[in-house]
Amino acid sequence: MTERQLKTRPRNRVIVNKKIAPYLFLAPFALLFVAFLIVPLIYAADISLYKKAMVGGVKFVGADNYIKAFADPKFWEGIGVLFKFAFLQIPIMIGTALLFALILDSGVLWAKAFFRISFFIPYAVPAVIATLIWSYLYGPAYGPIGQTARLLGFEAPDFVSQEWILGSIVNIAQWQFMGYNMIIYFAALQAIPGDLEEASVVDGASAFTFATRIKLPMIVPTIIVTVVFSIIGSLQLFTEPFLIQNMARSVINSNFTPNIYAYNLTFVAQQPNYAAAISFLLGGVIAVVSYVFMLATNQRIDR
């Protein structure tokens, strides 16, 4: 027995290690993933099946919360706002990010590293700080934009009015995330082999033709990924409107976006069970929209 163990031990150890090693490396991630995503999800799924009332306590209600959420106009109003937001924000952001990435990549720019960093810096600013900066800038009576406008004899634009509010939030998101997307595109563009450029120059293509006919098509998969991320990000909009709400109470109500709605249901209305159902419904909407987008783009690429 002992003899056998001694003999087999070294060989066994190598085999076991080879099998276990990847899992050991994955373990820290898996642990955090389970602790901070899977467990909370299970918890939320569980509480979404109950209802707690101030009078009467907790009772099991099955799918009631989901049925109620599905028919809740406040939820769908929020989704509507987010669709408008996404249709406004994503094209502008992706378009400008692409444009700047192409300019950076083309090599015509002087002080390339400087521009690359300065476009990217806003992404490093936490969303809370960014929103506070912008809400100061947007202040109609005492914000610098308003004051400059009045100094020049114009009526100061009301950035937090019904007409402007979405644009104002889009602007904050654009400022924050354009550089991030630009860096991703830039990295993808840098990976395009240099001989393609030589070939196109030999074929007489201009820099513009090369950019639009060769470079852009080659990074389409990257663009699709960033658009999916942007769709998910847009539908989860919370921080910016939540912080700007103070100064824009007339247009940002307690259910302006589904995440704000879920937050208020939990902490103000004391309905965490219903808020959990709203959150899952939002997750469902995000999954459907992302899937439809990917399906649509896949077909286009296949063609």
């Binding site: 809400s135 100061y136 202040g139 109609p140 009576a141 005492y142 914000g143 103070n246 100064m247 824009a248 109470r249 007339s250």
Partner: peptide, 10 residues
């Protein structure tokens, strides 16, 4: 709206 920088400044 109350309790905003604008309001205090006002």
């Amino acid at each position: 709206p109350g309790w905003t920088t604008e309001w205090f400044a006002g």
